[in-house]
């Protein structure tokens, strides 16, 4: 029993940083497309958007998302950390046909 408790404690210590801070997820903008267009991440994940086009774009949450990037010029980055589970849709306010989805589990 003592040994089991010890193991659980070790496991918790190992897992804590993972729970507190999931790996970053990158979404690039290439040829007017958010890529990958739909990603599923763990709660607490930081999503980093990178504009790789020669034209500015923005990343703007729709409804529940409520996040808004400044204009991103070529190679500019913008990040959002998603702490709560849910489905977050977003679009580019310059080129509104560009949309994407982040699913947080």
């Amino acid at each position: 029993m003592r040994r089991l408790k010890f193991l659980l404690l070790v496991a918790a210590m190992l897992l804590t940083p993972l729970i507190a801070r999931a790996a970053d997820q990158t979404v690039t903008i290439d040829n007017f497309v958010f890529t990958p267009n739909r990603v599923t991440v763990a709660a607490g994940t930081r999503v980093i958007f990178i504009n790789r086009d020669d034209i500015p774009h923005t990343v703007v949450g729709i409804g529940a998302g409520n996040f808004k990037s400044p204009p991103l010029d070529t190679d500019d980055k913008f990040s959002v950390t998603f702490d709560r589970t849910g489905t977050y849709k977003y679009f580019c306010s310059l080129h509104p046909m560009m949309t994407g989805t982040i699913v947080v589990r």
């Binding site: 729709i62 849709k89 679009f91 306010s93 310059l94 509104p96 046909m97 949309t99």
Partner: peptide, 10 residues
């Protein structure tokens, strides 16, 4: 025709 463009729209 460029104010407050809506997602998915023109």
């Amino acid at each position: 025709n460029v104010a407050q463009l809506k997602p998915g729209g023109e």
